[in-house]
């Protein structure tokens, strides 16, 4: 049996990995604290309000994490312009026909499981990249609605920048609803994301999961050679 030679490729640079994990943690914390804000548990107790502040603390964690989340997002945006080719914004926004064709290709092969040729992508595949762009838009909704709701409780200019949001929607209520529902959309997205990561790891054996920790993926020699050739042709053309 022929053994495949794998080559180590440094795909995810340090800032991308840091962003990914802090982001993941933020979303987890924001999701849980946010859910508690919308639906706090009730304790029957004799407590006096003066001894306890858990709900205030919960909200405090939510707001602080929101700030971390926002700064991480800004950092990642910056990195989309200065990072390596796998971190570039070009992986996420379908700007040309080729990108859209590639999305179709991935859809057919990975999702619909048709018998088409696998188009190996070393960074994000086209569909994944595009879905992260959608994810980015969803997080923007969260940030805009979240800080919009927060604006009136703050005196700092940054949240105040979002004070127009509730006014646009006629009041806080609708903004709160959008914030709440978008959280559920993110939950669904994350489920799919996790599933696909594990699926790719299983069926391709390129170290998809660990790559987000080490930064390396392991790519077949022939794939690398083929992609090099393609790049050569593109350059000449």
């Amino acid at each position: 049996m022929k053994t495949v030679r794998l080559r180590r490729v440094y795909v995810w640079q340090m800032p991308v990995r840091i962003f990914h994990w802090i982001n993941a943690l933020c979303i987890l914390v924001l999701g849980v604290t946010g859910y508690l804000i919308s639906n706090p548990p009730v304790f029957l107790s004799n407590a006096e309000a003066s001894n306890s502040f858990w709900f205030g603390t919960n909200r405090f964690i939510h707001f602080t994490t929101a700030y971390i989340f926002l700064s991480m997002l800004i950092m990642r945006l910056y990195w989309a312009f200065v990072g390596n080719k796998y971190a570039s914004w070009r992986n996420f926004i379908p700007i040309n026909k080729k990108f859209i064709q590639k999305i179709g290709g991935v859809l057919k092969h990975d999702i619909l499981l048709l018998k088409t040729e696998e188009d190996v992508s070393i960074g994000h595949n086209a569909l994944a990249g595009f879905s992260y762009f959608m994810f980015f838009l969803l997080t923007l909704i969260m940030i805009v609605t979240g800080f919009g709701l927060y604006a009136d409780s703050s005196t700092w200019f940054l949240p105040k920048l979002f004070a127009w949001v509730p006014a646009l929607f006629g009041g806080d209520y609708l903004v709160r609803e959008i914030h709440h529902v978008t959280m559920w959309i993110l939950v669904v997205f994350i489920l799919i994301h996790l599933y696909l990561v594990f699926l790719h790891d299983q069926y391709e054996g390129r170290g998809e999961t660990s790559a987000m920790i080490s930064g390396y993926k392991f790519i077949e020699e022939e794939v690398i050679e083929k992609q090099k050739e393609e790049r050569q042709i593109e350059r000449i053309a």
Partner: peptide, 10 residues
């Protein structure tokens, strides 16, 4: 203060 303390009427 009851809100911040997480003390709610059910």
């Amino acid at each position: 203060p009851f809100y911040d303390a997480g003390l709610f009427v059910e």
